[in-house]
């Protein structure tokens, strides 16, 4: 009995000696708590960054916001920095048109592909589609720009514009005045392909939140698969789909280099999708070089960035809040 006790104590002794660094549970708890505090500080960082970006841009664009009325800035259509005229209207309209065309072109095929992948596709097709979409998302914007320059601009200039000139000229927004191919339509096509991977993957995620029981019930009472989609799946996740589209639009609003390369960059309020335009991001990127040489010019460009940021923040927060709600219902 004593023997056994002895071996037991020596064993525990050797164990504690062997792991001399073994911490007490008080030390472990202290480490846990201090790690929690450190981590907490780091997680504040994203929130801090958003505020810092907003405040920084507001600070730099304050001079122009105080010297000009909002009406002059946002409804004025003359942009002559060296004469002190800063009218953002052409650029805002340019951004608006490019985004609308891009989203309108992207949404129908993206919805259909997402539906196909979630409702019809074989597991094998899905496993092929995912890497393809990842590749499409991985291609850098400037390469999209090169593609636009080499393929889309000539295509629009030589095929679509003459066609529209001959047949569709009387429809508003389709008149051809500048048949070079550098146009809102070209930028829209490039943007549509660029936002497609994002929209498809988000909409696909949204469709996977619909419980299979609902589909089975609908199919069991004799609906076809399309009727199931049309009357059961889509109505259930409509907010999620809208949010995904808004998310895609916010991505299109801020796209810079690819759009800049194909949109023509002439500051005018566009009247047709075959006109050239000059979106806000292109304005900032094209003029950063001489913005310190003319008074208020840098402030005007920062103000353009601020406008972009505000629009995107609104789009993003709305869509993200809705998407988080929708995706919470996903069965993991």
């Amino acid at each position: 009995m004593t023997d056994q006790n002895k071996t037991y104590t020596t064993q525990t002794n050797t164990q504690t000696e062997g792991r001399s660094s073994r911490p007490s549970s008080a030390a472990r708890n202290w480490r846990d708590r201090s790690a929690q505090k450190t981590f907490l500080v780091i997680t504040v960082f994203p929130l801090l960054l958003i505020s810092a970006i907003t405040i920084g841009l507001l600070w730099r664009s304050w001079p122009i916001l105080t010297q000009y009325s909002l009406q002059e800035l946002f409804l004025g259509s003359v942009w002559k920095p060296d004469e002190g005229l800063f009218g953002f209207l052409p650029f805002i309209m340019g951004t608006f048109w490019v985004t609308v065309v891009g989203v309108v072109l992207a949404v129908p095929p993206c919805l259909l592909i997402a539906l196909y992948l979630s409702e019809y596709a074989h597991r094998l097709t899905r496993s092929i589609a995912k890497p393809l979409l990842d590749l499409l998302a991985a291609i850098p914007p400037v390469v999209y720009g090169v593609w636009g320059l080499l393929a889309i601009v000539p295509f629009v200039g030589k095929v679509v514009a003459p066609f529209s000139k001959q047949w569709l000229y009387s429809i508003p927004f389709l008149a051809v005045n500048q048949p070079t191919g550098f146009s809102i339509l070209s930028a829209g096509i490039v943007l549509a392909v660029m936002i497609a991977p994002l929209v498809i993957s988000v909409v696909y995620e949204v469709f996977t939140t619909v419980p299979n029981d609902l589909r089975h019930a609908s199919l069991a009472i004799g609906a076809t698969q399309w009727e199931t989609i049309r009357y059961v799946v889509i109505p259930r996740v409509m907010p999620g789909i809208v949010a995904a589209v808004v998310l895609g639009a916010s991505r299109a609003v801020g796209e810079t280099i690819a759009v800049l390369m194909v949109v023509g960059n002439v500051s005018q309020v566009p009247g047709s999708i075959f006109d050239t335009a000059y979106p806000l991001p292109a304005l900032i990127a094209n003029n950063y070089g001489d913005m310190m040489s003319i008074p208020l010019y840098d402030s005007a460009l920062m103000c353009a960035a601020l406008v972009l940021l505000v629009v995107i923040l609104i789009f993003n927060i709305l869509s993200t809040v809705v998407l988080q709600r929708v995706l919470e219902r996903r069965q993991v």
Binding site: G254, L308, N316, I317
Partner: peptide, 23 residues
């Protein structure tokens, strides 16, 4: 909130980051 802020950051275009970096 942290996830929301990260998603929002993810959506801010690089030109705005560029302008912020410049500031």
């Amino acid at each position: 909130y942290v996830r929301l802020s990260l998603d929002v950051l993810w959506g801010i275009p690089s030109i705005v980051y560029g302008a912020f970096g410049f500031i």
